[in-house]
Amino acid sequence: MNIKRDIPTATLSGFALSAVLVLTLITILLQYLPLSQQRVGDALLVLNEKEGVANVVTTVVVYFRGFDTLGEIAVLFIASLGVGLMLQPNTECRLKAESNFMLQTASTLLFPLILLFGIYVMVYGHLSPGGGFQGGVIIASGVLLLLISHKNFEVPHTVIVAFETVAGVSYVLIGFMGLLLLDTFLGNFIPHDIANMGMLLSGGVIPLIYIIVGIKVGSEMSGIVQNLMQRSDDV
C-alpha cells in the first residue's frame, strides 16, 4: 500500500502535528511530577481492613467510590440505549457471511467455558484480580464469538433487557437498604467479619454489588455488540 496515495497529506500532517503537541505536553508534565513520592492509596489501605475484603481494589471501586461505579453503570446504560436507538435492530439485514464449520463447532464448545470463566471472575472479584466489569466483558466477548460464528444466533432482546433491568434496579435498591439501615447510601449493611477475609462469603455487600455490576456490564455489552452486528455495512 502506498501511504502517500491513500491518505491525504492534510491528514498526515494533522497526525504529525498532534504527535508533536502530545510529546511537548508530556515533556512539560514530566518536569512537574510531584517530588515527594506521597502514596495516595495508603489511607484507603488502612480503611480497607474494616471491610474484610481481600482485594483492596474491589473495596475502593465498589465501596469507597461506590457512587462513581453506580454512575459508570449509568453511563454504560445510556450508551447502550443510544446505540440501540441509533441503530435500531433490523432483522432483515444482518451479517450475511456463513462462517466456517470449524469455527462454529469450536465456538459452541468454547462458549460455556467462557461463560463459566466470566462468572468466576465476577464472583471472585473480592478475592482475586478481576471483578464485575472484567467478568461482564468476558461474558459479552463470548456472546460476540457466537454472534460472529453463527449466522442465526441472537440473544433475545427481552432476556438482555430483563438482566439489565434487574441488575440496575437491585443496585440502587441495595444503596437504599444501606440508607435505611446504616444511614448512608450504599452502606455495607450485611455483617462482614474481618475473620472471614479471603473466604467466598466475606465482605458483606461488596461481592454482591460486584456481581450485580457484572450482570449489568455483561448484558449491556452484549446488547451493544448485538446491535452493532445486526447492521450490514451496506446500510
Binding site: A74, F77, I78, V161, T165, G168, V169, Y171, V172, F185
Partner: peptide, 13 residues
C-alpha cells in the same frame, strides 16, 4: 440523584 437513576434503570419494567 438515586431516584431518577432508579427510574431510568426500571424503565423497561
Amino acid at each position: 440523584i438515586a431516584l431518577p437513576l432508579l427510574f431510568g434503570f426500571a424503565t423497561p419494567l
